[in-house]
Design a protein around this nucleic acid. Structure first.
Lengths: 203, 203
DNA sequence: TTCGTCATGTAATGGGTTACATGATTAC
DNA sequence: GTAATCATGTAACCCATTACATGACGAA
């Protein structure tokens, strides 16, 4: 869902649409291809009229004066920033899990913003995902065990590959869940991760 | 794409919509969740008015008299069968590859019907898929190598998992391509696979 | 001056979903 | 008789895409 992703990125820092798309592409690169402008800009409008984000007239005060090179204010360049209501909305979206199916990109997007969730929510989402993947895994095993003779070799190969992917994902999720339970951050993290977030973490 | 899947299944034998959905669920179980009726029935209409499939008034002659239990003709039960034009259309759809991205289910659906394609087409599609996955893999490697410090631990974990999936898929594709080149059928196939297809394999 | 990339947007379309509505048949 | 499953369909919506249109800016 675009809405969640946009709010999440703007939660980190204000940005204009074009930049948003690029960041989205790297942040969600593992999940899906880059979104199109035809989808991005109308969504920004919608979020704005809903009050979740504001249209700052230009940059300048939006970014901390250092680090980023001059930032010549070009043409229209509408810089958006998340509002307090937007942060609230983001929290809701982040915590809620829809009727996601295994092929739903919803999980991945939630996962990408796990750094902004609490451990309970993370666990709930991870376990929900695991359950769905396990169901799919069982379904595939069933087909391979019972309907194998009615399917051609390619279709079977596809099922096997799918089953394999399910098994790996379940193992991955198990690991993440175990980590989460023991309070450790996900994995090879060198920096101690202090909340480098400027101003109030939540809300 | 529903159209391809429907034509493919009806190419094997005539069926009514409800049954089609079930078969679709097992055939494409590795790719995506079951399709909804709200999508299936309108599509059947469309295919019918395009002339790709016909609406046989009732069952009875549609299935070979043996094997299947009485098949009491219930209510409306519209049994569809593929037409000659439909088979042609199926062939076109099967051979053509759109601008598929890595998260496009198009590849999986094509793959599921590989048994009805020629080896050249199979190779072309497999290699196309491999190229796209390799591109994505490179993109993920880039991010992990260059932008790692700007991303939080969860996002990185997601990228790693995605990268891993890419690497596995590339290996899988390599194997399939090698098999295809040497003329062997995909994998653990016990039966010699004679064309048990009733009447003309192609067209 | 022309090319690449930055930057924003609209209109038409696509390919599905959910929720709803209906009703026959089978098994208990 | 009543619940589960079989079976077909429609209407409203959703979330995106493609194709198009426009234009500024920097570098060669």
């Amino acid at each position: 869902m675009l809405e969640l992703a946009i709010l999440g990125l703007l939660h980190e820092s204000p940005m204009h649409g074009y930049e948003l798309r690029k960041q989205l592409a790297t942040k969600l690169g593992a999940i899906r291809a880059a979104i199109s402008y035809g989808s991005l800009y109308p969504t920004l409008r919608r979020l704005q009229s809903a009050g979740w984000i504001t249209d700052a007239p230009d940059a300048a005060e939006a970014t901390p004066p250092a680090e980023i090179p001059p930032l010549t204010s070009r043409r229209g360049r509408v810089v958006y920033a998340i509002t307090a209501e937007g942060k609230e909305r983001f929290g809701e979206l982040l915590a809620q899990t829809g009727p996601e199916t295994f092929d739903d990109p919803g999980f991945g997007i939630h996962f990408a913003f796990f750094a902004r969730t609490d451990s309970d929510t993370r666990l709930r989402i991870l376990e929900g995902r695991r359950r769905r993947i396990e169901e799919r895994r069982e379904g595939l095993r069933d087909v391979l065990a019972r309907a194998a003779e009615r399917l051609d070799a390619y279709t079977l190969e596809l099922q096997r590959h799918g089953l394999d992917a399910c098994e790996r994902e379940v193992r991955w999720l198990e690991e993440l869940i175990a980590n989460e339970r023991s309070g450790r951050p996900p994995a090879t993290e060198t920096t101690p991760r202090p909340p480098t977030d400027r101003s109030g973490r939540d809300e």
